[in-house]
């Protein structure tokens, strides 16, 4: 498996997780905040949540993220793949800055530069597993 292809699958997985979070948050805002913790209220809250189309969509996207992550782990070492998930912070910051017009402060920019440099180093440290399967 070529590392570039694994990276593309990871980016799709990250995008699915991000979209899933947005959908879940949109759905839970429609459901309303949980105020009472007696069994009847809790039941009503969770049944309303899992019946909401945004929540259902969000759960499906999170599931897709998990299955894609399993595929990534079948191709690559976990010490290589896991830190690449930090690309999410770059994508979120850029999305917030470009599309939502949010102000990104200097500390967060510094963090983004560090993450980008680390990802570049890590990406180049790919090597094929010596033992293809430890069954």
């Amino acid at each position: 498996m070529v590392k570039a292809r694994v990276l593309v699958v990871m980016l799709v997985a990250i995008a699915a997780a991000g979209a899933g979070n947005v959908a879940l948050s949109k759905g839970m805002q429609a459901v309303g905040s949980l105020e009472a913790f007696d069994p009847v209220s809790l039941w009503a809250f969770f049944t309303a949540a899992v019946a909401n189309p945004w929540v259902i969509g969000g759960i499906l996207l999170e599931l897709a993220n998990y299955l894609l992550w399993l595929a990534v782990l079948s191709w690559s070492e976990v010490s290589w793949a896991l830190p690449l998930n930090a690309l999410e912070y770059i994508l979120v910051a850029l999305t917030a800055a470009v599309f939502l017009g949010e102000r990104v402060g200097p500390v967060r920019w510094a963090g983004i530069v560090l993450i980008a440099a680390g990802v570049a180093l890590l990406y180049g440290s790919w090597h094929n597993r010596e033992t293809p399967s430890v069954s």
Partner: peptide
Amino acid sequence: RRWLGIGLISGGVACV
């Protein structure tokens, strides 16, 4: 090389 990458990424995530 991989440890260095992980170190930079972790530091970056902590900043963000």
